[in-house]
Nucleic acid binder design. Sequence first.
DNA 1: ACCGAGATGTGACCGCTGTCAACATCGATT
DNA 2: AATCGATGTTGACAGCGGTCACATCTCGGT
Lengths: 220, 220
Amino acid sequence: MATTPYHHGNLRDALVEAAVEVVREGGPEALSLRELARRVGVSHAAAYRHFADREALVDVVAERALEAMVAQVHRRLDRVDEPDPVTTARRRLVELGAGYVEFALTETGLFRLLFTAYPDPPEGKGDGDDAGEDPYNLLNRALDELVAVGFIGPELRAGAEVTCWSAVHGFAVLNVEGPLRGLSADERDATLTALLLGIDRAFGAGGSWPPLAPVALTTS
Amino acid sequence: MATTPYHHGNLRDALVEAAVEVVREGGPEALSLRELARRVGVSHAAAYRHFADREALVDVVAERALEAMVAQVHRRLDRVDEPDPVTTARRRLVELGAGYVEFALTETGLFRLLFTAYPDPPEGKGDGDDAGEDPYNLLNRALDELVAVGFIGPELRAGAEVTCWSAVHGFAVLNVEGPLRGLSADERDATLTALLLGIDRAFGAGGSWPPLAPVALTTS
DNA sequence: ACCGAGATGTGACCGCTGTCAACATCGATT
DNA sequence: AATCGATGTTGACAGCGGTCACATCTCGGT
């Protein structure tokens, strides 16, 4: 039994683990069922006992990626510590965006996979159970908070999620796989700060609020 | 010689034409050298006389796509007709973004291909010859104009291109291949208007400017 | 008018991929 | 102990990008 047991034991988990690793290193296009099987030490068709097709495996990796992203965003969100509630809410929105971008730049492969098979979050707005563990929900709650503390006028709330998400996502995409990928860390921090403070200005245009501190990414 | 001449005549052009058509219908992943050759009625290896590899063909299609995009943006830009120079400049920035998104939604396949092989425009800032026929240059000129007419304070100019591009590109991506692809035309118009006017607010936060009219896309 | 050279197209081949069907093996249940 | 369903294997197929030797055509120089 010591020599190559016929049954792997927990092939499914092993495949997922290997898949995550492969995608982290080479992005979605590096994900090959056959190479995965090779890596795990199993025949090339064995994976089909656990995944209907390649797509199904991609979906599982996407879930993992989403979790990792939420974790990274939370890490940044939790560091926010401001005396003023308005500044707190504003800062949280900024850090939310910065965490999103940070994940995109740190875990390029996972991020790229995420948006070749994103699990349509805006549709499932009804399930209030695990709501919150999803960047989209985090964003909406941050915006609601900004309305609650009086920073965002209620008339500007509609569509604000899409505006924020678009800006931050666009920045991430352009920097990860787009024409902005050559930017230095300093240039990135500067332009990202301009973008995030721009959003802040767009929402708080009504009143006269104190300026926000710049942002710096930890791209490691 | 009427029956299948050995030499095609202008295979290269025919291949490019077919490639553009295929990408328009099925996106970049539908672009296969072999199917192209089949469609043009030639053996699959013939294409390699005209293109080093698949990538080279993709690049040519990308150029075409970029031209088409610039044309569409121009079409919208040229319609702007406002008495006030400040309103003109503001409106032009809005229409620039709307045109970008409109192209993304109209020519989904070409747009998606464009960003799997984007010809790094920010790098080639030196060539002043054909400058202007590139969305990035159009954007920069629109922003400079906004500074010139006094809408954007000079201290906000740095990084403004990236902010605008990110927001609009993110919106396009999320709507074309991302989680926002289910949006109705009305929802899209509304959220895009919110986004574009948000950018307008972010830049003109200093003064008290008249409101801008909403935006509507022609997705046909 | 010819003839050779360079350009262009062909078919066979390689290795890679995802996917399926037939077969082998194992563990748990009866 | 026999059996059955879950799991893994082998072998095949089609499609892909890419390369090669070879066939065919076109055109310019003599």
